[in-house]
C-alpha cells in the first residue's frame, strides 16, 4: 500500500458558528428562562402574601425592628394619625397598629418594616422643610403597607433563592449567573413598587390637606444631589427627577390643586 500524505483544509471537529452568536443565543435563553421563573414565582408569592394574616406580619416586624436602634417618636405619631384618619373604613391598613420610630442616623431615608412599624432616619428630618413634605413621606411609607410590598419582596426573594438552588444546584457557577440576571428583574420590580407607593402617598396627602402642595418638594431637593441618571438603572429606587415627573403627571390627571405648604412646626424643626 502506498502512503500519500494529504493536508486536510477543512476541520470537521470544530463547529463553524461564531462564539459570540452562540453567547447571544444562550444569554437570550437564560434571560427568557429567568424572566418566566420570575413571573411565575411573583404570582405565587403575591397570592401567598394575600393569604398571610397581618398577625404573622406583626410577629415578623418585631424581629426586624430589633435591628434598628430607634426610639418611638410622639411628634411623628401626631403627624401620622391625621393621615390614618383619612383612610377609608374598609382599608386593609385599618388592621395594622402603626408605630413610628425615629433613628439617629444621618441617612436620608425612611423604611416600612413588616407589621406596621415605620422607621424615620434623622437625616431625612433635617432635609424636610414643610409639614406637607413630611406627610408625603409618611404617606409613601403607608403606601408600602397598603400594597404589602415588604412581604412581597420577601416572598419573591425566598422563592427565587429556592428556585435557583433547585434548578442549577447550590454553589454552582450557573446559579450565580442566573441570580445576576435576576438582579435586573428585581430592580425593575422594586422601582415599580416605589412608584406605586408614591402615587398612593400623593392621593393620601391630597385627602389630608385638600391639595397636593409639597408633594414633589422633597424629591426636588434630592434631585439636586442625585446627579446622573445612569446609576439608577441598577438602583432600588427610581431617579428623583423621574419620581417628580410621575407625580406631576398624576397631579395633572387627577386635577389636584397646589396650594401653599405649611412650614414644619417647632417640635420637629431644626433649631436655627
Amino acid at each position: 500500500m502506498k502512503f500519500t500524505p494529504i493536508q486536510l483544509e477543512d476541520n470537521i471537529n470544530v463547529s463553524k458558528s461564531h462564539p459570540l452568536s452562540e453567547l447571544l443565543w444562550l444569554v437570550g435563553g437564560l434571560i427568557l428562562l429567568v424572566g418566566l421563573t420570575f413571573i411565575v414565582l411573583g404570582v405565587t408569592a403575591d397570592w401567598a402574601v394575600s393569604k398571610t394574616p397581618v398577625k404573622i406580619e406583626t410577629w415578623m416586624g418585631k424581629l426586624a425592628l430589633n435591628q434598628f436602634p430607634a426610639t418611638e417618636s410622639a411628634a411623628l405619631q401626631q403627624r401620622l394619625q391625621p393621615l390614618l384618619d383619612q383612610l377609608p373604613l374598609d382599608s386593609p391598613l385599618r388592621q395594622y397598629r402603626f408605630r413610628i420610630f425615629l433613628s439617629e442616623t444621618p441617612e436620608v431615608n425612611a423604611i416600612a418594616l413588616p407589621g406596621g412599624n415605620i422607621v424615620v432616619f434623622s437625616g431625612l428630618l433635617q432635609q424636610v422643610k414643610s409639614e406637607n413634605e413630611l406627610a408625603m413621606v409618611l404617606a409613601h411609607e403607608l403606601g408600602h403597607f397598603a400594597h404589602r410590598d415588604h412581604m412581597r419582596s420577601l416572598g419573591r426573594g425566598l422563592g427565587l433563592a429556592v428556585a435557583t438552588a433547585l434548578l442549577f444546584g447550590e454553589n454552582n457557577a450557573a446559579s450565580e449567573l442566573a441570580s445576576k440576571a435576576l438582579l435586573s428583574f428585581q430592580v425593575r420590580y422594586s422601582q415599580a413598587q416605589e412608584s406605586a407607593a408614591d402615587q398612593f402617598g400623593l392621593d393620601l396627602l391630597t385627602k389630608r390637606y385638600g391639595h397636593a402642595g409639597g408633594a414633589t418638594d422633597f424629591f426636588s431637593r434630592l434631585a439636586k444631589d442625585a446627579g446622573n441618571k445612569l446609576p439608577y438603572i441598577l438602583a432600588s429606587h427610581p431617579h428623583p427627577q423621574d419620581r417628580i415627573e410621575a407625580l406631576q403627571r398624576h397631579i395633572k390627571n387627577q386635577h389636584y390643586h397646589l396650594k401653599k405648604t405649611l412650614p414644619l412646626e417647632e417640635d420637629l424643626a431644626e433649631p436655627q
Partner: peptide, 25 residues
C-alpha cells in the same frame, strides 16, 4: 473565562459544547 461561560450556559440548556470543541482539537 469566556469559553467557561459558554459551557456553563450550555449546562443549562444542553446541546453541543462548541466552545470546548476547538480546545480538544
Amino acid at each position: 473565562y469566556f469559553k467557561r461561560l459558554l459551557a456553563i450556559l450550555r449546562n443549562i440548556f444542553g446541546g453541543r459544547v462548541k466552545s470546548y470543541e476547538s480546545l480538544v482539537d
